[in-house]
């Protein structure tokens, strides 16, 4: 039988990929003010994040080792420690119990502590299914420090975080989704935990004749930049977070360079791109929600980057 004529049976060929290992953004910095405590659902687990008096963020397993209260609901920051709402046991930044009211002897109690890195207005934690330490350094967004303040956008979809990443290297869909006249010319290269892709595509319709430039940089499974130019450089910082198997929180944060000639223009450019990106994401989400992940897809020559991309992504699975 001609393999090209095989019909893809979703029930047989779709695969449930595991939650990947790597750095993932769980919150934006603005969502966690000083002394704030927040419940976080990520990687199929219940976590609690808090910011101590010293401004540092700590992320712990949420359920208290004592009688199991979720410390994200009603927990309080005392100094740089977290106090459980139920019986007021306190836990330090390493997750160690430091205080039990009225106890004659401090029990040896600990709740798991996650590696945290805050950069560029995002709070990242490292996830590894086996508990191994990070193989890659945490993401660094300090290069955007002098750019515009990030404009944030978030939504959820049913599906794996790979969908958000695979989308940006999928040349064929630019025609249908992003107004390109023909499949984009892509240039994909991978290097360790990072990968990049450059594309230039001719726009159709009203903008016919205009060439859009786009560069994508992927840093592990939890962070990707989409760089475009709108007189100034604009970057869509995208951080897909696996909330639980089959559910992803898709967070976008758009920043732009502030041009010397008119700093406010940076803000305008970022807002234009954010609208466009949010619009595209909304429509693409409908596809991601209902598609299945086909491990052995039928590909055409336009799709030649899909397999190298998947080989690169496999290191995180």
């Amino acid at each position: 039988m001609n393999p090209a004529l095989r019909i893809v049976d979703a029930a047989v060929e779709s695969a449930e990929l595991p939650i990947p290992n790597g750095w993932f953004a769980i919150l934006s910095s603005r969502e966690l003010k000083k002394k704030a405590v927040r419940p976080v659902r990520a990687f199929g687990k219940e976590l609690v994040a808090f910011r101590g008096d010293d401004g540092r963020v700590t992320v712990l397993d949420a359920h208290c080792p004592h009688l199991g209260a979720h410390m994200g609901y009603g927990g309080k920051v005392v100094g740089d420690e977290l106090q459980c709402p139920f019986h007021a046991w306190r836990f330090d930044k390493g997750g160690h119990c430091t205080h039990v009211p009225f106890a004659k002897k401090l029990p040896v109690a600990r709740t798991r502590c996650w590696q945290v890195h805050e950069t560029g207005g995002l709070i990242f934690v490292h996830h590894d299914r086996t508990g191994a330490p990070p193989a890659t350094p945490p993401p660094d967004l300090s290069m955007f420090a002098r750019w515009t303040r990030p404009i944030e956008d978030r939504s959820e979809y049913r599906g794996h975080p790979i969908e958000a990443a695979e989308n940006v290297i999928d040349a064929g869909h630019f025609v249908y989704f992003h107004g390109a006249r023909e499949p984009a010319a892509l240039d994909f290269s991978a290097n360790g935990a990072t990968a990049s892709m450059k594309t230039a595509f001719a726009l159709g319709g009203l903008l016919s004749g205009v060439t859009a430039q786009m560069a994508v940089e992927l840093y592990g499974p939890g962070l990707l930049f989409v760089r475009t130019k709108l007189l100034v450089d604009v970057v869509v910082i995208t951080t897909p977070l696996p909330i639980e198997p089959g559910r992803t929180l898709f967070r976008m944060s758009v920043v732009a360079e502030k041009p010397r000639w008119f700093p406010l223009f940076g803000r305008i450019a970022a807002e234009i791109i954010r609208r466009r990106a949010a619009y595209d994401a909304k429509h693409e989400r409908a596809i991601w929600e209902h598609k299945v992940y086909v491990p052995a897809p039928r590909l055409s020559s336009v799709d030649r980057h899909i397999q190298p991309f998947r080989r690169w992504y496999a290191q995180f699975l």
């Binding site: 219940e46 080792p65 004592h66 979720h70 709402p85 004659k104 002897k105 401090l106 029990p107 109690a109």
Partner: peptide
Amino acid sequence: LFENKLYRERPLLSSS
């Protein structure tokens, strides 16, 4: 608190 807590079969108890 009740809605979000975990039931620990083997809680770690203290003298208090």
